[in-house]
Each structure stands twice: as C-alpha cells, then as structure tokens.
Design a protein around this nucleic acid. Structure first.
Lengths: 224, 224
DNA sequence: ACCTGAACACCGTTCAAGT
DNA sequence: ACCTGAACACCGTTCAAGT
C-alpha cells in the first residue's frame, strides 16, 4: 500500500501474513511481490533469498511467543504446565511448527521454555547432569509430540484403518483395550498423561539401580 | 537398463534408490525418467503423479521394516527395547523419516511395533483404556523423538549458541547443570533415559490420585 | 542505495498423438 | 495397453540496466 520505499520489515510482515493466511507453501517470491506491489527482484535486495527470508520469519515469530510462567503447586505440576503452555502457544500458530521444523530450528523454538524448566527441575531437587537430562527429555517429548500431532491432523485417515492391523493379534483377551485403540486418540489427554508420566519417571529417578544394564546380551532386541 | 517394458515396480525401485542416494528432494520426475531411460510422461501412466509415487514408496519401505522382537527381563525393559528397535530401524533409513512425516504417515510407520507394545503393556498388568493410552504414549514419544533428533542432525548449529540464552539465568547456582546444558546432547542416552522414565511413569500409574486436578485455577499457566 | 524487466534453468502435469 | 514430445503454468535466482 504505502509505496514510499520498501523496507525489510515490510517484506517480513506481509510474508508472515501470507503464511498465516495460506500456509508456508503459498509463500512464493512472486506472490509476495504481488502482495507488496513491487517487482520480484526487489525482495532479493532486502532479504537475500527465500531461504533467509524464512529464517528471519521463523526467528521473529519465535521471539513473539513470549515467556512461560509456570503454575501449579508441586514442581512436577509446574513442569507439566510449562509443557502445556508451550504446546498451546505453538498450536495457536499451526504453520509455524512445520516451518520451524523444516528450517531445522526446532530446538530454537523451545528456548523460551527452557529457562522455566531449568528452574523447576532445580526446585524438584535435581542437580547437574541429571537435571540437564530431565530438561532435555521434557523438551524433546513436548516438541516431538507437537510434530506427531500436527502430522496426524494433516492426514486424518491413515491407510489401513487405525485398528485393523492389530485386532487379530494380542489384544483378543482384552476387548476394552481393542476398543480403546480403535477409537481416535484424544490428543489433549494423551499429551497431559504422557508428560505427567515422563516427569514422574524423571523425578523419582531410575528404579532398582543395580539390576539395570547388568547383562548386555539380554537387553538386545532383534529384528528380522 | 532392461528396456523391454516399464513396470510399476521398476519405477518404484529406481525411485527408492534415487531417494536413498540423494535424498527426497532429488526425486524429480525428470531425474527419475532419465534414470529409467524413458520419457517423463511414461511414469505418469504407471504411478499417477508424484504424490502417489511417494505414497507407494513410503508404504513399501515401511513394510520392509519387519517386525520387532522385544527383549529383556521385565515388561518395562521389553517395552523400552521395542522403542529402541524401532528407532534403530528408522535411523537406518534416514530419508524415510522425513518422507513419511511429509506424507502424513507417521502413524503408519509405527504399526509394526504397536502389536509388540500391546502385548508387553498387557503383560505389565495394564488393561483397557489405560493400556491403550500407555501404548500411544510410547508411540508418540518414540516417533516424536526421532523427528526432533533428525531435525537436529540436519542443522547442527543453532542460531544462538545453545547455552547462551539461559546461562545468565536460573542455573547460576548450579554450574554443573549449566555445563551439562551447554554440552551437545547425546541422543542415544537421552532417548534411553526418556523412554525408560516415561515407561516407569506409565506403569507405576498416576500419583496421589485425589490431589490432582482438584483446583482448576491453579493448574492454568499463563503467557504474556 | 534501491528498484526494474528480461532471461535462465528448473519444476509437475496435461494432452493429443503415436504404436 | 503403453509410450512419446510439445506445451503450459508455475518455480527461485541472476544480472545488466536503470534512477
């Protein structure tokens, strides 16, 4: 609109708007130029190329996300609340997840939450390498869940009907399990339960210290 | 090579080879045609279009993966071994993960392992909806981890140096934690620990049943 | 310093035409 | 039933040329 002179910010803003409206694949240099009312090549002067345009876009969107304030009475509850908050923020920007992932910035996406997690894990009594491992575990779990979940939303029906493959097998004696697996997943609940279980496992620590990893041979799984 | 007459299988095979060699983005219809020694348009007759070519590719590769044999003494150990085996199989086909994900078939990718998981979760004493939730939790955790991990491998250096952002903050009083977070993640260990912690949390069940979800207000997290 | 159009080397896909 | 080349409508990017 304002044709005075094109700024880098203008490019980024309308690019972001274009992505938010029609998804990342709709962000072509030509479409962006049309939206801006300039020649395609002008964009290159301000932004370099499409690659770095997306980089900048992701970076600024991640920074918009703000910090998370943990809530809950126990450290475990507060850790779960951070994960939940991150998930909510990312789900509010559905295209961002895919873009961040494609750009290889998945880790970057989690940084706002990491500080909060470090604090809570520390409050829960974990120290040093163990605390760091716990933070990373929650980090990977949360982001991974989001990726899987988004993937699932994109293609609602899987090739062989969800329950078909296994109904003939081990679950015969547990019809309730069979029915539960045949039902579509409730992602909110699954996320809640998974994170809670993981955090619980992380905070209570490894079980029966001496028994694990005793015999390496038995631990090995095989695949044909 | 054998130019007698093009088969659908030939197309799929050389397409798979091309992806394995140079990655999914190298699979263009023109490159494939060149490799096959045919006209580009012949491919369309056998396979429809690029979209369904990728579908078929992913589907057959997933089926090649074979089934997983759990190993270990306790049900928990066997569940972990299934997750570990799946991760190993998928990591042996690095391009597949991205392709499956892009195709929205992430769920499909996990089916070979699902039967084994159902069996083990059942053996651990879980029943019905609770057992199904546990299976799904491990499923999401494993696949999610792989997605994050692969993403990390693709872009080894993150924009702000990994530790930079938080060193100024909460971890001041725990230099060991700070150092651990600054070090690059050991994915094998992290995976092992995460799955083990999750499984432990799932099998021991929700803690202090009465206390959770009592007051909804306090559970809410906020973000600016 | 900033913007432009023309041109290049790619895509996936369609379609009428061959055998 | 199977294969073909020409053509279409797209891409991202470069570059010499303008002001």
């Amino acid at each position: 609109m304002a044709r005075s002179s094109l700024t880098r910010e203008q490019v980024l803003d309308t690019a972001a708007a274009l992505v938010r409206r029609n998804g990342p694949q709709a962000l072509t240099m030509r479409a962006l130029a049309a939206e801006l009312g300039t020649a395609v090549t002008s964009i290159y002067w301000h932004v370099g190329n499409r690659e770095s345009l997306l980089d900048a876009l992701v970076e600024s969107t991640v920074q918009e996300m703000g910090t998370l304030r943990p809530a809950g009475r126990t450290p475990a509850a507060r850790i779960v609340s951070v994960a939940r908050g991150l998930r909510r923020q990312l789900r509010a920007r559905p295209h961002l997840i895919a873009m961040v992932h494609e750009r290889g910035l998945t880790e970057r996406m989690f940084l706002p939450a990491q500080q909060a997690l470090v604090h809570e894990v520390h409050a829960a009594g974990l120290r040093g390498a163990r605390a760091a491992a716990a933070v990373r575990a929650v980090q990977f779990q949360t982001v991974g869940f989001l990726l899987v979940e988004r993937n699932r939303e994109r293609s609602p029906v899987q090739s062989p009907g969800e329950g078909e493959l296994w109904t003939a097998s081990a679950a015969d004696d547990d019809p309730a399990l069979a029915r539960a697996l045949a039902r579509p997943t409730d992602p909110d609940r699954l996320f809640e339960d998974s994170v809670r279980a993981l955090v619980e496992g992380l905070l209570t620590g490894p079980p029966q210290q001496g028994a694990r990893r005793r015999t390496g041979t038995q631990e090995r799984e095989t695949a044909e």
